[in-house]
Design a protein around this nucleic acid. Structure first.
Length: 267
DNA sequence: CACTCTACCTGTGCGC
DNA sequence: TGCGCACAGGTAGAGT
């Protein structure tokens, strides 16, 4: 399940796209395109050139340069749960889960696979609305800004961390990992945090995400493998805490499976 | 504002 | 073996 570190890893892998011309666009499943029709997407992209490839939170942003017919636009891609975005050789053939193929001028293809069909692709003129609905990217968040933003809320820590308008990029897995590292209970209300606890939370957030990015994403035994970051609590219900040996608990918070150590993260 | 629920999807893994 | 079903969860949108 791609969250910020996995998306960052994808963005890095897509850098060779920059400067390449789009030769063909093949939408394999129409539902993947959001906000315009598959035909419009194809027509508007074909013949144009990719600019810089970046990201905010879990959204992948591919600039499409201005040409004689159109101003600069952005191809915005969200992988949601099961999306995979990667470059492949021109000869690569679509599999049953391939939703979109963009062939580019160096004989390669940008391929978007998504078994669950949750992922979406759109083309926008302006990133303003997207930036407007998202909080600051979790990797760029400063401690001061974190304190300032948390002060206005009265919510459970887990729910708050998942809120993209609060901080962009954290999903269910890293929310659990961040809370574990900070030693805070997922149901604790953010308004009850002491200054020291706020600092621990910020520090855990930065270090967990930083390490995960460095490792190229998470590695969850038998479930998900993007990189080498080993999770401590996610998916480990009933197994011993890596820190104290107590059995990891699983509860539901905001309709999400939530894992924590009852000893290291007391209520 | 905080929260809850539902819809969107399908592969996986369980019990029977 | 195969069937039915709960489950996984990011986001939007509606409702309490």
């Amino acid at each position: 399940m791609p969250e910020l570190p996995e998306v960052e890893s994808v963005v890095r892998s897509l850098q060779p796209l920059q400067g390449r011309f789009i030769e063909t666009v093949h939408v394999c499943w129409d539902g993947v395109v959001d906000g315009l029709t598959a035909g419009q997407l194809s027509q508007r992209l074909t013949g144009r050139r990719f600019g810089s490839i970046g990201r905010i939170g879990k959204y992948i942003l591919c600039a499409v340069e201005a040409d004689g017919h159109a101003t600069q636009q952005f191809l915005v891609i969200h992988l949601r749960m099961t999306g995979r975005l990667y470059l492949a050789a021109a000869e690569a053939v679509p599999n049953t889960h391939t939703r979109l193929i963009i062939a580019v001028s160096n004989g390669r293809q940008l391929i978007f696979d998504d078994p669950r069909k949750f992922g979406r692709v759109s083309l926008v003129d302006d990133l303003g609305p997207l930036y407007g609905k998202l909080g600051p990217d979790a990797l760029k968040l400063t401690e001061d800004e974190f304190r300032r933003r948390i002060a206005g809320h009265n919510r459970q820590l887990k729910t708050l961390l998942l809120e993209q308008s609060f901080i962009a990029g954290i999903g269910n897995i890293y929310a659990d990992e961040i809370l574990f590292r900070s030693g805070l209970h997922p149901l604790m209300n953010c308004s009850k945090l002491s200054a020291a606890q706020q600092e621990r939370l910020y520090s855990a957030l930065s270090s967990v995400l930083g390490e995960a990015v460095e490792a190229g994403g998470a590695n969850i035994d038998g479930v998900f493998k993007a990189g080498g970051f080993r999770v401590a609590v996610y998916g480990r219900e009933g197994r011993p805490c890596v820190c104290c040996g107590t059995a990891i608990c699983k509860i539901r918070v905001a309709q999400r499976g939530t894992h924590f150590c009852p000893a290291c993260q007391p209520a």
